[in-house]
């Protein structure tokens, strides 16, 4: 019996935080790639401490729904899951290349395939692009458009910026958008000055975040000048300094993120049949858990 466990942050304050995790779990359940799909959270239930004891399978794949390698993937998750003998060197990563490792979870005395985070997987680049297609409603968007990938910056986690650069480079290499730029919330080049960095009239802005919350729904829209007050909402696109800003909200809410979760598990050894194709098809036809342009305020945690 093969089990997938998606682990994520969750929130005590914001009910939207865990929504992408649940949506992606539902997508993967629907394509039947695993005998069971479970979710575990740092801040919600079941906790990371107790999620493994709810798992019935003997082939267990744990995929962190996090953006970058760092405190959570390297310390919190292995500790809380009780992965015996975990050491960050297990991943032999340069900050972007963590793939998977096999360790015994002492809570259940069974082996667990512990995967790298979804945010650093190369397939995440496709999700960013899909997000641009979703927010513009144009499956061929690119020509005449600039693309900004937005992240925290290095202040909190050096690997966070690495992931932003990595995906920005990959989108640039596609030669699909006229311009591609990595922007940050707390360092240069800053998202506040988004229009200074683009010549294109139309710019898609996609934050590399898992869920919508304080940063993606309040900070970034206000910083970019989409709105003076996030509570009043903003237009998509919104005109700022003569540019049309297509603000997409957190990339992790895009349905195709389920594909990246599956890729991580497959690379760790899970046999998932044609689930990748099924998920790509399904998330294209059913659309996304769209939050762009939402007037709903949200609290961060």
């Amino acid at each position: 019996m093969q089990s997938l466990v998606i682990v994520a942050h969750g929130s005590h304050l914001n009910p939207d935080s865990s929504v992408p995790t649940h949506n992606h779990a539902d997508t993967i359940r629907a394509v039947g790639a695993f005998d069971e799909v479970r979710t575990g959270f740092w801040k919600e239930a079941p906790s990371l401490r107790e999620v493994l004891r709810t798992v019935e399978g003997d082939e267990i794949y744990v995929v962190p729904l996090f953006i970058s390698e760092g405190y959570f993937t390297e310390q919190v998750i292995p500790r809380e899951l009780r992965l015996d003998g975990w050491d960050v060197s297990e991943w032999d990563s340069d900050g972007l290349s963590a793939s998977h490792t096999v360790l015994t979870a002492t809570d259940i005395d069974r082996e667990v395939h512990y995967c790298g985070p979804v945010g650093t997987h190369e397939a995440m680049t496709d999700v960013l692009v899909r997000r641009a297609e979703s927010v513009t409603g144009d499956p061929d968007v690119g020509d005449g458009f600039g693309f900004a990938v937005v992240g925290h910056g290095t202040e909190r986690n050096e690997n966070s910026a690495k992931a932003i650069e990595y995906h920005a480079d990959r989108i640039r290499e596609m030669d699909r958008f006229d311009e591609v730029q990595a922007l940050y919330m707390d360092e240069e080049p800053e998202v506040d000055d988004v229009t200074d960095y683009f010549e294109s009239e139309d710019v898609v802005v996609v934050p590399l975040f898992i869920a919508d919350g304080f940063h993606t729904q309040e900070d970034i829209p206000e910083d970019m000048g989409l709105t003076d007050d996030y509570r009043t909402g903003y237009d998509v696109p919104a005109v700022v300094d003569g540019h049309r800003i297509w603000y997409a909200g957190a990339v992790g809410t895009e349905g195709l993120t389920a594909d990246v979760i599956l890729e991580r598990a497959e690379e760790a050894g899970a046999s998932i049949g044609n689930a990748l194709e099924a998920v790509r098809e399904r998330t294209r036809s059913t659309g996304t858990s769209d939050s762009a342009g939402s007037n709903e305020p949200a609290m961060g945690d």
């Binding site: 239930a45 079941p46 107790e50 004891r53 709810t54």
Partner: peptide
């Protein structure tokens, strides 16, 4: 288990004398 995650697993461990 969806309403009350992990409560069945913990209840069982307790009844089995193995609750950690």
């Amino acid at each position: 288990d969806t309403f009350y995650p992990a409560t069945i697993a913990n209840w069982y461990r307790e009844s089995d004398g193995t609750l950690d």
